[in-house]
Nucleic acid binder design. Structure first.
Lengths: 136, 136
DNA sequence: ATGACTGCAAAGACTTTGCATCTTT
DNA sequence: AAAGATGCAAAGTCTTTGCAGTCAT
């Protein structure tokens, strides 16, 4: 089985890491999370495999938060919240992505819509609390 | 008037440039567009003033497209389309941003929503045509 | 004089790439 | 032997910053 051979052990570790976290991590974050189980992994390998997975459609990029690209193993269309204070990214499964609007966009512009990204920004719960403390 | 003094001439040129284009340009693009009228401007000045304008709420960032941050002088909530092929960014004024969903997000997560960004991705008209030519 | 804006070059942060090595077939 | 995966270090982009010079009050 591919997963167990030495050749693909690190590649699999990266994908497994991404699939097992809710943090929507950056390459660096994946690298750090893997230190425990794969202390000999290289950051270049993380970057290379993330690029590979994305080209295969196994993962998607959420764009850049505070200078670093963030990745998500969930490729279904769904909505995100990004904390502008600490950079935390979380899913908003309660909110429905307005995919239907894509058709309207196509009609009016002649573009071919392939993806839709809805992101809310603001303060996460803990940063909101911190702000309150500081002002009080 | 501030605009006419030498001290603010470049700062104003940058803001004016941004307000007068639909391209949602990057810092580099602004720099290049200004070459004609301000050939002695520095790229650092463009970066510095874009950061200033953003901190003042005069402009907003759309995030990163192909590695470069893109800016928009229109700070009203509105929807964008990004061409994944050529990096073109355009407004979709026909599509209404789903601001109302923000309240739902706040309730269910305890976050404080401050902004909302809806972006459709795909192929713009001209890239769509090019793709067709290549396959035919 | 003092504070503000700019250019230039250096530094910084994030990401990609070339090359040698090791693994699998 | 050939193709693929990885580590390391170098290179590449984009962006920020320190400093000296200039402008305005």
């Amino acid at each position: 089985m591919e997963a167990t051979t030495k050749q693909f052990r690190k590649r699999n570790a990266i994908l497994t890491c991404l699939r097992g976290t809710m943090l929507h991590p950056s390459a660096e974050m994946v690298y750090e999370m893997l230190q425990e189980t794969n202390p000999d992994i290289s950051l270049a390998t993380v970057y290379r495999n993330l690029a590979l997975f994305r080209s295969q459609g196994l993962i998607q990029s959420l764009g850049t938060v505070n200078g670093s690209e963030r990745f998500d193993a969930d490729t279904h269309p769904h909505v995100h919240f990004v904390c502008t204070e600490c950079g935390a990214v979380m899913d908003l499964p309660q909110v429905e992505p307005p995919l239907s609007l894509g058709a309207a966009a196509e009609e009016s512009t002649g573009c071919q819509v392939q993806g839709c990204q809805l992101t809310f920004t603001g303060l996460c719960g803990s940063c909101k609390s911190k702000m309150k403390e500081e002002t009080s």
